[in-house]
Nucleic acid binder design. Structure first.
Lengths: 161, 161
DNA sequence: CACAATTTAGTTGTGCACAACTAAATGGCT
DNA sequence: AGCCATTTAGTTGTGCACAACTAAATTGTG
């Protein structure tokens, strides 16, 4: 198996895999890191900021809808939203019509926080040196990658079954 | 930039921020997800796989060097490496020359796992539909983003001090 | 109507990321 | 030599991600 072409190219792929895995992993953590610093002033973590962004944009939503928007399940969202509630930014209210559903509502304080959050993208964007076109292109590529990966996960899971 | 700069453009940036934040966050988790499925056979998590990739490529390393390669600190690596040890894939040995340092060594079993891991990149890569050039380009962009973000985090941290 | 299947949140347990801290060994400096 | 700063791992605590599970309400079907 030493000098055979299959083994060599498989090893090359392993090296490439290390590179791309690492790049994405590092980028994600770097992103998280810079937001952590900027969001510290607002008292938000990065995932909490994502939730607030959705609420600011779309108004009050049930946990279910939040999870769909952000692709997060209740195991992640339930405690996160509770922490937002503890911070006084949202209220959780059982829907009267469907008692299974919990509506997440911005409080005055939560809505007001948006004003301060308007600063955030400027502080990030300005410093990264990426212009709008580049951001858009990167985003398009990442979304394409995500779709492909989701499909691949489906495929891989099917193989295992 | 539009003619009316302040409120409208800040809100626009907030919306863009939501989009790019979400795209990267989602891509990272999708990546994690597809690897989770594929790595299940090997009994590895994604970060554990990253550590093993470095060890396969570069041989035994102290925890310090692993952390530098992967930009992970001891708070993450110490328990992770312990779990790899518990799985029989590595041994941890205090260096005789410098008793502060802990050398992470592949066991026979750990080295042997590489053979099975050679399958992994093919299973991922084939399914994503990205060719080598695209992977390279994406990687270059992500690395540039990471550098910029690291610099931005430095900058932001300096502002706060 | 009765009851099984589905939907919606929440809980529990495992692992990762990171900040803040501790402990021990080392190296440098006077 | 003596001491202090640095280096290297490890520990503790908080929060996120996700799998597997539970509980309760709702919906669909015979």
């Amino acid at each position: 198996m030493t000098a055979s072409p299959t083994a060599a190219s498989a090893a090359d792929w392993l090296r490439l895999d290390r590179q791309i895995c690492f790049s994405l992993h590092a980028a994600s953590r770097a992103f998280n890191g810079v937001y952590r610093v900027v969001l510290k002033d607002l008292g938000l973590t990065y995932p909490q900021y994502l939730v607030m962004l959705v609420l600011w944009e779309q108004g009050d939503l049930p946990v279910k809808a939040l999870g769909e928007q952000l692709r997060l399940d209740s195991g992640t969202l339930s405690p996160l939203v509770k922490r937002l509630e503890a911070a006084g930014l949202v209220r959780r209210e059982r829907s009267a019509r469907d008692e299974r559903s919990v509506q997440v509502r911005l409080t005055e304080q939560g809505a007001a926080l948006r004003e301060r959050a308007l600063e955030v993208p400027r502080r990030i964007g300005a410093a990264t040196g990426f212009d709008l076109a580049e951001i858009g292109e990167l985003r398009e590529r990442l979304d394409r990658l995500t779709s492909a990966l989701d499909a691949a996960a489906e495929e891989a899971a099917r193989e295992t079954r």
